[in-house]
Amino acid sequence: MATSNLAKAPAPETQYAARVFDLAKVPLRELNQALHDVTDGSNETAWEVLNPKGNHAVAVGIDAAINVDVHGSVGYYCAGMNQKANVTVHGSVGPGVAENMMSGAVIVKGDASQYAGATGRGGLLVIEGNASSRCGISMKGINIVVRGNVGHMSAFMAQSGNLVVLGDAGDALGDSIYEARLFVRGSVKSLGADCIEKEMRPEHIEILKDLLERAGMTDAKPEEFKRYGSARTLYNFNIDNADAY
């Protein structure tokens, strides 16, 4: 198994072989630089990362339509600011996975620590296990689908995008939320300031159906979810809402 091959492989028979980076042998810098050197239309569309062992900033800042498979658990900020790429983590992820993601998809086979998808602007983040606290904090357009539960303060100050939780949500869901949509199938421990349950209209069922399909979670039915969003009472300051600030 090749460890590092920074030179482009010209031979046609190796054109489609995955490029493999074993982080036990190759520094992180080499992996990320190689990922940044890929341009759109390159044949190097398959990448594998071995032995991440909880290290940080794995596969960050990619800007090309490639597939990256990370085998093992990673630390903070895996796939941070991702654009176009599909990054799959065959393990669990530390804080801030796919933070500020722009587009593409990040799939986590295990659990996610806090701040999953923080400030994400686009793309799809799928967490097949549970997500910890502050999932989707300050999200700005990203779609997040979590098969398990999400922890406290999830979708805090969420501005835009959709958070779909097949399990339960922890305390203070959607505190100070703006226009993001929250769909929860299980229980919600408590709603945060200015977050309320809202009517599930046909357009929301459509959005949810599409997201569940794209996340490969078609065993859940859109009708089983409740929708939460902003009561918009904090949109313009009013002293009688001071307790909520």
Partner: peptide, 22 residues
């Protein structure tokens, strides 16, 4: 404090891994 510290423990791949609640 981070998963990194646990990554080399025996049988970690099969362990129940979670974050303590507040």
């Amino acid at each position: 404090s981070e998963y990194r510290a646990l990554a080399n423990l025996p049988g970690i791949e099969q362990a129940r891994v979670w974050e303590p609640e507040p």
